[in-house]
Computed example of a mutant assay.
Amino acid sequence: MSIYDINVKTIKGDEQSLAQYKGNVLLIVNTASKCGFTKQYAGLQALYEKYKDEHFEILGFPSNQFAGQEPEENEEILSFCELNFGVTFPLFTKTDVKGSAAHPLFQYLTDHAPGLLGIKAVKWNFTKFLVDRNGNVIKRYAPNVSPEKIETDIKQLL
């Protein structure tokens, strides 16, 4: 199985295969609108604008699994991200990223890039996973790692 065998739902509810992102460098992030790290949307958007023409995509997956910090419905999440941070990178439907109901994408990501001390579970909002053009999970970043600090790694893959 590869990351490209996984299907996801866009924030508007359309089924989509990750195969459409083959050949792109991906930064996959679990997000939340009411988190101390929410301001990272601005840094993510800046990276997206800078590198989107070089086959770079950011995929945002809102999750309400951490202290209820994403209580809104998909429509409100999209509106919040667009109005407050000018987000134009793809957002997906609210997603479980940990536990027995974790979406297959996040099961795949955490299996291939465990966190500190080998712990697989996503620990908080704005955990980031960098995937190369061939679908290999290259690195996992803790929530407190700002998007700007990931730029060098992204550039190396582009």
Rank of each mutant, 00 (worst) to 15 (best):
G86D: 08
S63F: 04
L105V: 01
E57C: 11
F66I: 10
K120H: 05
I138S: 08
G43I: 05
I138M: 05
R140A: 01
Q45C: 12
R133Y: 08
F56V: 11
P104Q: 11
A121L: 11
K123P: 04
N84G: 09
A102H: 08
K50W: 12
A142Y: 08
R140F: 03
F126W: 04
A113Y: 02
A121G: 14
K98L: 03
F80Q: 03
E54P: 04
N144C: 07
G135S: 09
P114S: 07
F66S: 07
N74S: 14
A46C: 07
N136T: 11
F126R: 00
G86I: 06
N84K: 15
V87D: 02
D53T: 15
N84P: 03
V145I: 14
Y48D: 09
N125I: 01
E49S: 15
F129W: 07
G60Q: 06
E72M: 12
K139D: 00
G115A: 03
E73A: 15
A67M: 15
P114V: 11
W124C: 03
I119N: 12
D53L: 10
A46H: 11
E54Y: 15
S79K: 15
L59E: 03
R140E: 02
L105K: 00
L44Y: 10
K139H: 07
N64Y: 10
E82R: 15
L83K: 15
L59V: 09
A102C: 10
L59H: 06
G99H: 05
N84C: 09
A46G: 07
L117T: 06
A67W: 07
A46S: 13
G135E: 01
G86P: 08
R133E: 13
G115H: 00
G135K: 04
A142F: 07
G99W: 05
V87N: 05
N64C: 12
K52T: 04
K50V: 13
K94E: 09
P114N: 10
T127L: 07
N64P: 06
D132E: 04
N136F: 09
I119T: 11
L117Y: 14
E72K: 04
T110I: 08
G60R: 04
E54T: 12
K139S: 02
L109A: 12
L83F: 15
N144K: 14
F129K: 00
N134M: 11
Y141Q: 04
N64K: 10
A102R: 00
F85Y: 13
D111P: 00
T93L: 12
D111G: 05
